[in-house]
């Protein structure tokens, strides 16, 4: 998913299941087993290994983008069709882009929680 990224980084140390592990109403991580439980994704550049789990992930991600409680962008180390499907569909239905940037582990590690990050479209995939 192409697009500019400009926002504050939120690092998630483990993959997140959006269905069941994230509340699209509040934008909060609610999976009690997740290290960042309680953190809010709204408007953040969410840097994480990827998503996991259920087939419900695209719908919940898309719903959060619709509501404005979802990430502004995502930086992941594993290409993930569930994230792409949610993002692409929300962009089509609501004209609200949520770009996804694929990076390697070292690049992900270089992102510091709370700092502002900027990426240009030619660097996105």
């Amino acid at each position: 998913m192409a697009g500019s990224i400009d926002g504050q980084v939120l690092r998630l140390d483990e993959p997140l299941s959006f269905w069941g592990g994230f509340d699209a109403t509040s934008g909060a991580v609610i999976d009690r087993a997740h290290p960042q439980v309680g953190e809010t994704l709204a408007g953040k550049v969410v840097a994480m290994p990827g998503s996991k789990g259920s087939s419900g992930t695209p719908g919940v991600l898309g719903e959060s983008i619709r509501r404005g409680t979802g990430p502004a962008a995502m930086v992941v180390t594993k290409a993930d069709i569930n994230l792409v499907a949610g993002s692409l569909t929300a962009a089509t239905l609501y004209d609200r882009p949520c770009p996804i940037l694929l990076v390697d582990t070292a690049q992900l590690e270089s992102l510091i929680d709370g700092e502002t990050v900027i990426a240009r479209p030619e660097e996105t995939s």
Partner: peptide, 17 residues
Amino acid sequence: INSCHYSGSMSLDFAEF
């Protein structure tokens, strides 16, 4: 398919689309 399972307004918007 599971897209027919309502999981928020986007399920409905997508179906209407």
